[in-house]
Design a protein around this nucleic acid. Sequence first.
DNA 1: ATAGGGTTAG
Length: 504
Amino acid sequence: MLSWTTMISAYANAKLNAKALKYLILMLREGVVPNMFTYSSVLRACDGFLSLTQLHCSIIKAGLESDVFVRNTLFDIYSKLGELQNALGVVNEMVTGDLVVWNSIIGGFAQNSDGDEALNLYKRMKRASFPPDQSTLTSVMRACTGLALLELGRQAHVQVIKFDQDLILNNALLDMYCKCGNLKDANFVFTKMLEKDVISWSTMIAGLAQNGFSREALNLFQSMKDYGAKPYYITILGVLFACSHAGLVEDGWYYFQSMKKLFGINPGREHYGCIIDLLGRAAKLDQAIKLIHKMGFEPDAVKWRALLSACRVHRNVDLAIFAAKQILKLDPEDAGTYILLSNIYANSQRWYEVAEVRRTMKAKGVRKEPGCSWIEVNKKIHAFILGDNSHPQIDEINSHLNQLIHRLMGLGYVPDTNFVLQDLEGEQSEDSLRYHSEKLAIVFGMISMSRGKTIRIRKNIRICGDCHIFAKLLTKMEQRTIVIRDPIQYHHFQDGVCSCGDYW
DNA sequence: ATAGGGTTAG
């Protein structure tokens, strides 16, 4: 007869979570005492915070919390549930650990979008003389990906070579180069990969599309099919994204309509999101809104945001107001949308509504996150925050910026103070536009990096119209390449043109 | 005998 623990482990492996938990109870009823094997198995079957807390209690009671396996599984499950503080509590008192524990911890933070903490822990791990393996490096790559740390990622790449052709690690490496806006190295890695799975293809297709190389993305999709790899729903998302950004409305529609027939995949929420974006970009706002209503899903904020973007580009104020109101119904904390709405009202002298929006914001205590831009120079990260002058070279940056603006104005640059359909806050005079964080970061990059080097910046909020024009003209005047990654997409500026085609 | 870690989108 199989033992209780074996049964529980088998159920946990089969993801029959309820059964695994039930067997633990049966086992306890029978008077059999669970050991560390039992607990590390049953923990994997734990998918709710409450049951996890209960298990944690009984683990402490049984005195098994110090077992390295139990502790690690506990940590892992807490972090999978997004309970990072509890997870840290489990590891902080840890005396001994091993490589897997470190990997769990680093992976936990990397997966919970806390790249900073993941990289800190990686340093601690190295100080504790644990050499990283495939799993560690995968998480380090993911952390670099999230933070857009190309130099650090490159440094980790050197170590990847030791683990020749690990598929998961290569996928993470590939994604790192894509998300850092370095398509050249991404292509290099992709070509060198002996084994590619659907994730490799999907990563590369989406990476090309997000960076503005839509045609290349669609060509790669064709190669993928020729190669015999089977696309799945994330692959199609990349394809639709490419169509929408290249203005290929008909191709996009075709893939969307026939994805079920061609690939056996039903369009999901995200596919609808891409298609609404596609229609909106093509100025088919009526069709976009029709689709929102008849798609068979309750529309979420993502759909309304796509529509709002379209309204901004195609200057449809009434529909913008409508979309903004829908967003705020679903996401009442969205400061950017309140500000955009209030700007629209202010522009049409609807002061009563302006006041009302401001009142709501105040009542809810929503405040707009200040714009922040990061740039990595000589393996150090420099942060620029709107209104913060603490950077040691801020005076030099400002004076250089003023000179640049002066020279650009001579070439026809006019600061864009029309922020009606943007979410810029307060009195956006020419003067305050001047100190937007991405401008400071760009100038810092110009001062501190040689001319041939691409200036790469990551932003926490979307780029504004004025900074966009500024960057375009600057790359024309100075023969520089600038890449800015915002939370949604990438802007590759070169020779006065941006890869986004001025739509974002 | 029975146990722990890593990749794409959002």
